[in-house]
Design a protein around this nucleic acid. Structure first.
Lengths: 345, 345
DNA sequence: ACTGTTTACTAAAACGTTACACTATTATCG
DNA sequence: CGATAATAGTGTAACGTTTTAGTAAACAGT
């Protein structure tokens, strides 16, 4: 149905090979300018489009990188996706974004589908807790390079992530610097691998100042605004005595703020809030959000860089990379630091 | 490198055809249970995965639907994407999500790429103002069915959209029912095809009540929280006299709320707010958002339904469909209706 | 015992490319 | 002038699958 190289060859009076050579802009082979021009003209006239399948079948390469996401609920994950996407595009490759729409079953399906020789490489943006080493086997067996943005237990693959432990440490230390001693922590449940480092960072910060950890201030939260709202409510109900809350991420923080306001308290006057991620919405929250910014650009660029190093050198046994980037504290209204500074004036 | 049908055929002592027949689970051909079992066993043993490219090349079908988005900034667009994705999955097809990451140039690239026989059909979630009829030509020429969620000028293709005019009419009428007479409208700029229907709906509602339209209350807004924040600021600066604002969408509304609070005013006491879309964040805004909910599920299901009707009957000349679904008013705090009801008690 | 039918399977040709190994033709040089 | 080299191309075999048209064997019917 479509126009093929054969059609162009016939029309231009040359061989299929020549047409292929010309249209691929292969600089090496010797084709006269005249022939080149004729082929290009005919191709344009017939509105030729290459058949991606035939090309991929023949070359074994698709110029396609699979971008695997669990869902599109989190703004920070989306901004990672966008940045990675553009890094891949800038290298002349295309992106095949796959989302599991919040279903772990889909994740397995998608990985199998990607393994059907569909992509040259894979970046997994939200691996855990949805992706296990075993699920990635089909890709590993076919030597399809994988980079994840979070470590996967039991599998040695390139991983470039954010040092969440240190981030939480920075945030909690900041709150302590403002005088807070009773600091709540809304953390994801244990199945989320981000949870443990966060709790560690929290403990480290408190330990360092010799403050004992009050376990009742550690509250498990669901994800999203809704999760934060409910978790903060539980925290406020059970112990009215905390003066600050460190939230799992900005979306949880926005939900938590709403719960605090609903309880008749003010942010940051009565309770200070710190989030994690630095999403745009945080800036426009009723009380703008102090947070730890993830180095999204860096993260994306380096992830793609590592992936392409492997693509370019398929045979070489490059060492597995495990890199942790540092988040950066962004001070806005919700932590009360600005309020305090103003008062001092 | 991968295991092919040939490998299985050799190992199982049958022909390639037989293997293909068995593994595709073609019910028609007569293959004995014994042979069938042997082939399946060998395939499993060798960890066979079909080669998607070879299959697509041979059959001319990829079982892939392209899902085209301009960006992932808007929550409502994402929820449409997720719903459409799962509708496509439930039909045994796969989704190829492509985002232009906010660059119109990418959009053209992506469409060309999709036209390289890469997909069997396309759903465009945010066509306007980024996609023109001319850009879609490569798809149209190859008879790849397209469904958009918004009309595209100059091109007759299936379109299933939301009746924004009526939505705005409902929202503005609701505000008028609450006694508001000076109602601001934050609308996208004219390049956005949603803009005109919104303004129309606004005018219709006012006309119906015999209220003259004060043009100074119609303010052009950028997208996202930031856009809403800035536009609301402009509105408040130039005329302090409006008592309600209808916002282009929920994200704009959240930004606008922040601007109102920054100006020392309260929502909804001093200024009532109504948004459009019904995103989750609106529920957890400091003042929960009254809005017009888009019928996302319906939208997605019907879009996919139309697409598959065309896929299943490629030759039949099905009539072009243009469907507008009705949004639904969701009353929360920001419009002041609840406040008023409480006072009355 | 012959035709005809059913059952179980297979050979070979596509699909549109690319890659490899060639062949003409023309130019260069001692 | 003949030999060599450079230039400009071409023919054909893959890539892994599906599809079409077939064959070989077993079986039934008269």
């Amino acid at each position: 149905m479509g126009v093929t190289l054969k059609d162009i060859a016939r029309e231009a009076g040359v061989s299929v090979t020549t047409v292929s050579l010309v249209l691929r802009k292969d600089p090496h082979p010797m084709i006269s300018v005249k022939t080149r021009q004729k082929v290009v003209d005919v191709a344009l006239k017939l509105k030729y489009r290459h058949n991606a399948y035939a090309r991929a079948l023949r070359t074994g390469k698709s110029q396609l990188i699979g971008l695997l996401m669990f869902d599109l609920d989190s703004k920070i994950a989306i901004s990672k996706q966008e940045t990675i996407d553009s890094a891949i595009r800038s290298r002349g490759y295309h992106t095949l974004l796959q989302t599991a729409a919040g279903h772990a079953d889909n994740m397995r399906d998608i990985i199998l589908e990607l393994a059907s020789s569909a992509v040259d490489g894979v970046v997994i943006i939200q691996p855990a807790p949805f992706v296990s080493a075993e699920m990635l086997l089909p890709l590993v067996e076919r030597d399809i390079p994988i980079v994840t943005l979070e470590p996967i237990e039991g599998l040695d693959i390139d991983c470039i992530t954010v040092n969440r432990k240190h981030g939480v440490y920075l945030g909690v230390s900041h709150l302590m610097g403002l005088g807070h001693r009773k600091i709540g922590l809304l953390h994801a449940d244990a199945s989320d691998p981000h949870s443990a480092p966060r709790i560690e960072g929290y403990r480290t910060a408190l330990d360092e100042s010799g403050i004992p950890v009050d376990e009742s201030l550690l509250i498990e939260t669901g994800l999203g605004c809704k999760g934060g709202y409910e978790a903060a409510k539980r925290l406020l109900d059970q112990s009215g005595s905390c003066t600050a809350i460190f939230c799992n991420d900005d979306e949880v923080a926005i939900g938590a703020m709403r719960a605090i306001l609903d309880a008749g308290l003010r942010v940051p006057d009565d309770i200070a809030i710190v989030g994690f991620d630095d999403i745009e919405m945080g800036v426009y929250a009723t009380v703008s959000l102090t947070t730890l910014a993830q180095p999204v650009n860096d993260l994306a660029e380096r992830a793609v860089e590592i992936l392409f190093k492997r693509l370019d050198a398929p045979e070489e046994n490059l060492p597995i990379q495990m890199i942790g980037l540092e988040p950066r504290l962004v001070v806005r209204e919700s932590c009360g630091a600005l309020l305090k500074a103003n008062k001092r004036l």
